[in-house]
Amino acid sequence: MILHTVNKSPHTSNCLQSCLRTLSDQDALLLIEDGVYAADNHYANQTEALGEEITLYVLKADVDARGLQNRLSSRFQVIDDAAFVDLCVQYPKTQSWY
């Protein structure tokens, strides 16, 4: 069980692609900072194709800052900073793609 975080835009970096190649069942993916652009419903084909056992999160403050509130794929759960901390505790390991 690994928490993967991605903080780079999928349009300008291969962080998300590397993450998706190595994501296992029972892992979780959290998009933060410019990583949240990958949760845009226009772009989310790849993440939406992931199995249901992989949980997808996106950080609210970064979504709001970028004006993506109404553009998100429904596959993602929007979480606040406190929930981010909870995830870090809940998952024994974190891989940061940056």
């Binding site: 835009s9 349009h11 300008t12 403050a61 709001d64 800052a65 970028r66 993506l68 509130q69 109404n70």
Partner: peptide
Amino acid sequence: DDGVFQLLPQQDTQGI
């Protein structure tokens, strides 16, 4: 490129 994201409406940066 990602510069077009600067022009999206509804940006609310209080949280960051």
